[in-house]
């Protein structure tokens, strides 16, 4: 087994309030510990709140501002501009938000910040629903998945936020997850050395919201990639595509059969999901061939 040795500056500490086995704790550890102490972050309502802990305690050794739900991007931009005005442009400004706060209610502010290419890092912890409020659907919830607001399964597809961000021509947008830690860490280092609006969408398999055993978040992360449901890729400047890890020939059934949120699916619905995954992959491969970063 490969053992990762990753240089870390201790910023994220034990004593956080994440569910036992949550992938987000591991993801956050590498984001914060690589960005280090010369950073500040904004956190909207999300699982990040319990992860930080209640006043006067904090699991993070950097200043955190709990902003309003829809304002992560604009709040981060306000801090960055103020730091610049105070001659502290060297400070990293991070937004740490969930998919509800990003794909849904925060999208308008995010679009504006991306269009301005404000110098912030936006990490979207994407657990494909409003898990902190007890599993309601977001526009990131995939088709046919059960949530408490889509008890018969969600009818529409998951929104493709990578393409939306790429359409803003931001310097960097990528997908990542903790099943591919080396890839994730490389991406964090890469954006730390860049300027402008940078985003990583981290797939966070949710133990409670998706319904799988508490020790399976890493397995679920890997299966999401190996089945092609969540390919890992980067888009730079809106046009340069790099696929890091794609499907390995496993059917989507391998992934969805392990999750309670898909338990109600008919064979026909499973084929629909397979078809959607295949289409998405074909499109992504096509884009990567047309606009390869190495061309």
């Amino acid at each position: 087994m490969k053992h990762y040795e990753i240089a870390e500056e201790k910023v994220f500490l034990p004593g956080h309030g994440a569910c036992p086995g949550c992938a987000m704790a591991l993801a956050l550890r590498y984001v914060l510990n690589i960005f280090g102490r010369n950073s500040v972050a904004v956190i909207p309502p999300s699982c990040m709140g319990p992860m930080m802990g209640a006043q006067p305690y904090s699991s993070m050794l950097i200043p955190i501002f709990h902003n309003s739900f829809e304002s992560s991007a604009s709040s981060a931009a306000g801090i960055k501009r103020a730091l610049r005005a105070r001659d502290r442009d060297d400070v990293n400004v991070l937004a740490l938000a969930g998919d509800g706060g990003t794909y849904d209610i925060g999208l308008q502010a995010l679009s504006s910040v991306a269009e301005h290419n404000e110098d912030i890092v936006y990490i979207c912890m994407d657990n494909e629903g409003y898990m902190n409020t007890g599993t309601q659907k977001s526009s990131s919830t995939p088709r046919h998945a059960y949530t408490t607001s889509t008890p018969g399964g969600k009818e529409s597809r998951k929104k493709n936020l990578v393409e939306i961000m790429a359409a803003h021509h931001v310097p960097y947008v990528a997908t990542a997850n903790i099943g591919y830690l080396d890839d994730f860490v490389t991406k964090i280092h890469k954006i730390k050395d860049m300027k402008g609006t940078r985003m990583i969408i981290v797939l966070i398999p949710c133990i409670d919201g998706w319904g799988f055993p508490g020790d399976a978040a890493a397995t679920m992360s890997r299966l999401a990639v190996q089945t092609g449901v969540f390919p890992l890729y980067e888009v730079e400047d809106g046009t340069k595509y790099t696929i890091n890890h794609g499907p390995e020939g496993l059917p989507v059934e391998t992934y969805i059969s392990r999750q309670r949120r898909y338990r109600h699916l008919t064979a026909e619905q499973v084929s629909e999901i397979q078809k959607e995954v295949d289409e998405n992959w074909a499109k992504l491969e096509g884009m990567a061939n047309l606009f390869s970063a190495t061309m």
Binding site: V42, F65, N67, S68, E70, S71, A73, S74, S75, A76, A77, G78, I79, R81, A82, A85, Q108, A109, S111, S112, E115
Partner: peptide, 14 residues
Amino acid sequence: PESEHSAMAACISA
């Protein structure tokens, strides 16, 4: 910004 809401958000954090 794209709205007064975001304008005020940036005012607060700045």
